[in-house]
Nucleic acid binder design. Structure first.
Lengths: 350, 350
DNA sequence: AGTTTTCATGTAAACGCTTACAAAGACAGA
DNA sequence: TCTGTCTTTGTAAGCGTTTACATGAAAACT
């Protein structure tokens, strides 16, 4: 364990060189004689020297940390992404500074301002609320950052996301092919690009299969579990209620399952339920939830790699990567009851 | 959004004072005339000034950040704790620097060394692996830290945990009162204090109810889901297999449930399953898992508060807080089959 | 051998702030 | 009005680094 306060000056004294040389060793400067380097390294070892991060970054170097801004920590969703980020960062010996905005847009801009002001070398923004407020400044100042899971509505900027539209399309199509015609949809927070895309994917699937879109079957939620519960209740109350409910994320799907059960209906026999995300719980819930898998951990990894690239070559071309989603079929959906022929037909028509 | 680089000198110029006065305003020094303070505040506002953290801490102040060391991010377990920590920290406008040791003891000591070397003002250590390596140094240097969920086997140090012994005792007793006599137990990583305590609680309950302890009913796991699976399989294979399985945490309990189902047995009718932690999934799994609730989020909060106290009054008395666990009865346990009378008797005998 | 080039090393200034100390006002008591 | 005290403000040094520049020694030329 390191001693109270060992500075490069101490190391320099011990190694019999000037502190400048020590600094060069730390920074892997080529202009150090191998023998000298060795001597310095030994001194550092013996003294248990650890370079002071604050001083390094103040003096113009890098901070060795990247900032991560997330809306909250409530669901497994963010956790998965963080795992991916953490895995990549650990490889690079970079620190992770975590900020939770608690879904407050104003805090978001605030944090970004603070962080970009020297706390970190780069920024990872998960599910940003209103990135428009700061991406401009960030880009202009050439500060490296990557958006995760956000469809930039405006400017081009580095981002990684999933094929939300396609995923929702696949999900809805799966239900359609199972013979469902009345498919309830519970949206996410509609100010988020991903939520919009999922709704669009759902609508597109209906259109493709010539099933009319009705607003009464769409309930606007906010990605939280209670919305799934109340949403499902509302959907079950419409005249000619849906035979399937597609929720924009897994936790809302689970909320919906609770509501359906509370009404005394069976899943999937009476109502099919389909989610989005494939969080760990999706597999454990009973019946196991059929859902659209988002490669969350991978999104975290890829975003981090992009950021690291940006850190090395700040001028490299901005890009937006969309990772493919995947339909995971489990036990929460089955063909529409008493209409297997229908389902079969639907699956192979247009 | 803040401009490129605004320093206290800029603010001072704008406000017509010296930079020293600006610094005083930042640090809420009493020796500033109200009018002057106001002027400085305005200048700061107009310039969008944000004090540079690195510089502040370098110059002797606090870093305004606390470090959090966790073993991993895999299970919801840590996530819950982090939520509590984050909630408290946000209130204090402190930053969170997150480190993942990936369950490597050596990394742990390493990180602690680095962090204590000026990166952060205090340290929160979740499920520390071998704290003995560094608590000595930390204490000696009077560096504020709090251990979360670790039974300090050795020295006294600030820590918060749960009543693991009592929790396991309650759990085992619950099963005993339901009439179970052959109760399988799957341990956690036995190098962790909490795992030891849980085993001890289980044994104590057996003893209290005059049920013999047999080693063949104890399977040593490591807190990961696969251990639950293989553990349950092993336990079902012993002659006169258990009628109930108590796993040292929920994810292992879920692994056990999978194994039991795979054997074609019903839960809870054929085998009762009981977990520990009450992670969010416990409620969602079917049958819903009866478990011992650990107040994880609260543990995070309490630990953070302790750390904040320590930060303010470094000399305050060390303390170890144990938060009570609670038996949460759900659907994964029922009286031992065909022996309700037994169960009833057991419940009210010594 | 003398001169230039190269490379390793030392030195000083700067990064943006805190803080002890000095200086200058303000104000009271005599 | 003068002295002493208290309060506000300015100033300089220093926190532990990096980095541009200067220096000196060794190596490579002629």
């Amino acid at each position: 364990m390191t001693n109270q306060k060992t500075t490069i000056v101490d190391v320099a004294a011990k190694a019999g060189v000037s502190f400048g040389t020590v600094s060069r060793v730390i920074n892997n400067d080529v202009h150090v004689r191998p023998a000298t380097r060795e001597r310095v390294l030994q001194a550092m070892e013996q003294l248990g020297f650890v370079a002071n991060r604050q001083a390094r970054s103040l003096a113009g170097g890098k901070t060795g940390a990247i900032g991560l801004l997330v809306p909250d920590l409530g669901t497994g969703y963010i956790g998965e992404i963080i795992r991916g980020i953490d895995a990549e960062l650990t490889l690079q010996e970079l620190d992770l500074i975590l900020y939770t905005t608690h879904r407050t847009a104003s805090k978001e801009a605030n944090y970004v301002a603070n962080l970009a002001q020297g706390m970190v070398d780069g920024l990872l923004l998960v599910l940003p609320r209103n990135p428009a407020d700061y991406v401009g400044t960030l880009t202009q100042r050439n500060f490296p950052f990557v958006l995760i899971d956000h469809q930039g509505t405006g400017k081009e900027c580095p981002a990684v996301g999933a094929t939300n539209w396609q995923g929702a399309f696949d999900a809805a199509e799966h239900l359609l092919k199972l013979g469902h015609r009345r498919i309830g949809f519970i949206t996410g927070s509609m100010d988020l690009g991903c939520a919009q895309d999922r709704l669009a994917g759902y609508r597109a699937a209906l259109r493709t299969h010539h099933v009319p879109y009705t607003e009464e079957l769409v309930y606007e939620g906010t990605f939280f579990q209670p919305d799934g519960f109340t949403g499902a209740l509302a959907l079950l109350d419409v005249p000619d209620p849906p035979t399937a409910i597609f929720a924009s994320n897994d936790v809302m799907a689970m909320g919906a399952m609770d509501a359906i059960r509370q009404r005394g209906l069976r899943i999937p026999d009476d109502i099919a339920v389909l989610g989005f995300d494939d969080i760990p719980q999706a597999e454990m819930v009973r019946p196991a939830l059929t859902t659209i898998q988002q490669p969350l951990e991978k999104m975290g990894r890829v975003a981090t790699q992009m950021l690291l690239d940006l850190l090395e070559a700040p001028e490299s071309k901005i890009q937006r990567i969309e990772l493919p989603t995947k339909l995971i079929i489990r036990d929460s959906c089955c063909p529409r009851q008493g209409s297997y022929a229908d389902a079969h037909n639907a699956a192979y028509s247009a």
